[in-house]
């Protein structure tokens, strides 16, 4: 075996962090199995009651809404990001490439709160978008965008855009251009080449980008909380309300656990469903 004298030094900080995370997860897990004592921060004995309560329509609905929101966000991001990623990979102009890269990636460097506030400025009744629409005469009165699912989705798309563009671009750049040329020489026009060759072959990037956007949206908190303003309830806002308004830590913990399991399940399902496509496309 090769001696790696500094390996221990390099790995131990990461090991500590991993240990901390595992401990936190374990704590959440054990909280989820406790009895909630109203009016107290302490918890009671072990129970499965929290998980059973999850089946109540109120919570089931929150889960369903969250999944819907995640799908809508991921799908919107995909549709908006695909042309950008395509242009990024295919353009010959380095100016266009830099522009797309900067425009698509900067949201990564804005904190979630800053980004959310800027969307509140854009979406508010006296905000940028409404002022514009009214001035241009498209609408008479401001359209309600704050505190709606649409507003939340718009802001979340902004969050997931960079990672989606990057993953799609990675997928697109792996496509063998000769395949497209071959299709072209066989009589396929640009649209046919795109639909029969480029799109199926970019499936791995689409699956990766979509799953990531889905998972990010599922765990997003500040955006649905601030822009939804309590009127758009997701699993994470629900966890916040239960944990920090009612101090029902056990139930908040069990919601977290189920939320995590659910988002992993959806992603696994997604992977499974698109697997044939993905496998075909990646085997070059």
């Amino acid at each position: 075996m090769i001696k790696r004298p500094f390996l221990g030094w390099f790995v131990s900080p990461a090991g500590l962090v991993a240990l901390g995370l595992t401990a936190a997860m374990a704590a959440v897990f054990q909280f989820s199995l406790r009895v909630y004592i109203p009016g107290s921060l302490d918890v009671g004995g072990f129970t499965l009651q929290n998980f059973a309560a999850m089946l109540r329509p109120l919570y089931a609905l929150a889960f369903w809404n969250t999944i819907l929101l995640c799908f809508e966000t991921a799908a919107s991001t995909l549709i908006l990001a695909y042309p950008l990623a395509y242009a990024l990979v295919r353009t010959r102009s380095s100016a266009v490439r830099s522009f797309i890269l900067i425009a698509a990636v900067t949201p990564l460097f804005l904190g979630e709160v800053v980004r959310t506030y800027s969307w509140m400025i854009v979406l508010g009744n006296n905000g940028f978008l409404n002022t514009l629409l009214v001035k241009l005469g498209f609408v008479e009165r401001p359209v309600q965008m704050m505190f709606t699912a649409g507003g939340v989705i718009a802001a979340l798309v902004h969050v997931t855009m960079p990672i989606m563009v990057i993953m799609l671009a990675a997928g697109l750049s792996h496509i063998d251009r000769n395949c497209e040329k071959a299709a072209e020489s066989l009589g396929a026009g640009p649209i046919r080449v795109f639909l029969t060759i480029t799109l199926p072959l970019s499936m791995p990037g689409i699956v990766a980008g979509f799953s990531t956007a889905f998972a990010w949206t599922f765990s997003a908190f500040a955006t649905p909380q601030l822009i939804g303003g309590g009127r758009v309830s997701t699993v994470s806002t629900l966890i916040y309300q239960l944990g920090f308004s009612s101090f029902n830590f056990p139930f908040a913990a069990s919601l977290s656990i189920i939320g995590l399991a659910l988002s992993l399940a959806v992603i696994a399902l997604l992977k499974q469903a698109t697997r044939p496509l993905e496998r075909l496309a990646s085997a070059t």
């Binding site: 040329k181 020489s185 072959l201 496509l277 075909l280 496309a281």
Partner: peptide, 17 residues
């Protein structure tokens, strides 16, 4: 796509899917 030409590439470029 309107030239009716057959082409074979060095890497074959078969459609993998």
């Amino acid at each position: 796509h309107q030239r009716e030409i057959g082409i074979v590439f060095q890497n074959y470029a078969l459609f993998p899917h």
